[in-house]
Amino acid sequence: MSCPALIDFEASCLPEYGQSYPIEVAVARIDGSSRAWLIRPVEAWRYWDWSDEAEALHGISPQMLESEGLPPQQVLAEMIDFVRGCNVYADADLDEYWLEVLCHAIREPLPFPVRYLGEFMSEQGFTRPQVVAALEEAKRRLPQEHLAREDAKRLALVVKLLLEGQAA
């Protein structure tokens, strides 16, 4: 089983500090596969906000985005292909917002809904102690935070641990 898929974005700044744009996105499936993309900013974003605070958290600089970032159209196409057939979940509604910002910038419709991970956990009947235990174990195994690629993998691991515990 490879679904569901978990998505996480990093952005140019925290929304409370200005108008942010997506700079990195990662998607991880519960089978352990994952993909991450740096997003080259579109021209319209050049005048949006950048936060040194956010950069210190995720370690991604504007120079990295220019030299290593991929065109947003390519990122979106590869992401759509990677999540095909999966429901996509995030632990924050900001992830859907940044997907919308990405799509709007390249005049593409939202390719899939981003559902709230808490709803999935509730629908599956997981209890708070089960979720907390799975989250603690996932953080122990994957402790690095504020990198989309690591955050998405950790969320996918939480779901995998919960589903495996349910089957046991």
Rank of each mutant, 00 (worst) to 15 (best):
48 W>I: 07
5 A>T: 01
7 I>S: 01
110 L>S: 11
10 E>R: 04
10 E>N: 07
18 G>Y: 06
18 G>A: 05
158 V>G: 05
66 E>S: 07
31 D>V: 05
118 G>Y: 14
45 W>S: 06
55 E>V: 01
128 R>V: 01
85 G>L: 05
119 E>H: 07
154 R>S: 02
103 C>E: 06
89 Y>C: 13
123 E>G: 05
16 E>A: 01
102 L>G: 08
154 R>N: 01
19 Q>L: 14
52 D>L: 15
91 D>T: 07
129 P>W: 03
5 A>M: 08
37 W>K: 00
12 S>E: 10
97 Y>A: 04
69 G>L: 09
63 Q>C: 04
56 A>M: 13
72 P>D: 09
109 P>S: 04
62 P>A: 02
129 P>H: 08
153 K>D: 00
40 R>G: 06
101 V>E: 01
31 D>I: 00
163 L>R: 08
60 I>W: 00
161 L>M: 07
7 I>W: 10
110 L>N: 14
166 Q>K: 08
60 I>H: 02
100 E>L: 08
142 L>I: 14
2 S>R: 14
25 V>L: 05
91 D>Q: 14
138 A>F: 14
74 Q>N: 12
61 S>L: 01
72 P>S: 10
116 Y>N: 12
4 P>R: 09
87 N>F: 05
63 Q>F: 10
112 F>I: 08
58 H>L: 08
135 L>H: 13
122 S>L: 15
38 L>K: 07
83 V>S: 08
88 V>I: 15
147 L>R: 02
98 W>V: 01
144 Q>D: 11
99 L>Q: 05
161 L>G: 04
143 P>T: 05
51 S>V: 10
36 A>T: 15
61 S>I: 04
13 C>W: 15
14 L>Q: 11
129 P>M: 10
73 Q>C: 09
120 F>T: 07
122 S>Q: 14
101 V>A: 02
24 E>G: 06
120 F>G: 00
133 A>K: 06
10 E>G: 02
34 S>A: 10
129 P>G: 11
87 N>D: 12
71 P>W: 13
37 W>A: 00
11 A>L: 14
73 Q>D: 13
125 G>E: 15
164 E>H: 10
123 E>V: 03
51 S>W: 09
36 A>L: 08
116 Y>Q: 15
42 V>I: 06
16 E>S: 00
41 P>M: 04
13 C>E: 15
40 R>W: 10
45 W>H: 12
71 P>S: 04
161 L>Y: 03
69 G>M: 08
54 A>C: 09
56 A>T: 12
26 A>M: 11
4 P>E: 05
58 H>V: 00
46 R>N: 05
89 Y>A: 12
31 D>R: 07
151 D>C: 13
27 V>W: 09
17 Y>F: 07
75 V>D: 02
155 L>H: 03
153 K>G: 02
37 W>I: 03
143 P>I: 06
16 E>V: 03
15 P>K: 04
1 M>Q: 03
93 D>N: 11
51 S>M: 12
46 R>G: 02
128 R>K: 15
152 A>L: 06
95 D>I: 02
51 S>Q: 14
67 S>Q: 13
53 E>V: 01
58 H>K: 11
16 E>N: 07
64 M>A: 11
64 M>N: 12
157 L>D: 00
7 I>L: 12
119 E>G: 04
12 S>R: 03
125 G>S: 13
36 A>G: 15
80 I>F: 08
147 L>Q: 09
15 P>G: 11
45 W>E: 10
66 E>G: 02
9 F>D: 03
